[in-house]
């Protein structure tokens, strides 16, 4: 079990990586900044699971990231304290100094 690189409360940015094939990292969270709110168990990343590489696929820790809706959508019509949570594996995240 790899030690998770990020801790609850850390500020992270979702990378905008090239994805030739399958991924489960949504376009609308890429390049956006959020806060880690929970750890999730280590698992084969979807990019490898899609090819059924359950034994040989890359395993990574997963995180729940909470975004302010106004960070995701510049024209957000709701209220400033509204949020969205979703999950990503570690290699999609980069630390943001803050």
């Amino acid at each position: 079990m790899a030690r998770p690189k990020f801790q609850v409360g850390d500020t992270v940015r979702i990378k905008d990586r090239t994805t030739l094939f399958h991924t489960r990292t949504q376009k609308f969270i890429r390049k956006r900044v959020g806060t880690i709110v929970e750890h999730r168990p280590e698992w084969v990343i979807p990019e490898d699971e899609a090819w059924d590489r359950m034994e040989t696929g890359r395993k990574e820790p997963f995180y729940v990231i909470r975004f302010k809706q106004t960070e995701l959508w510049p024209d957000y019509t709701g209220l400033a304290h509204d949020t969205l949570e979703t999950e990503a594996s570690e290699s999609w995240l980069e630390a943001v100094k803050g």
């Binding site: 168990p41 997963f62 999950e87």
Partner: peptide
């Protein structure tokens, strides 16, 4: 207005 709406997009294993 004082309630935070929190959307959960279940995109992985949860």
């Amino acid at each position: 207005a004082d309630v935070e709406v929190r959307v959960h997009d279940s995109n992985q294993k949860s």
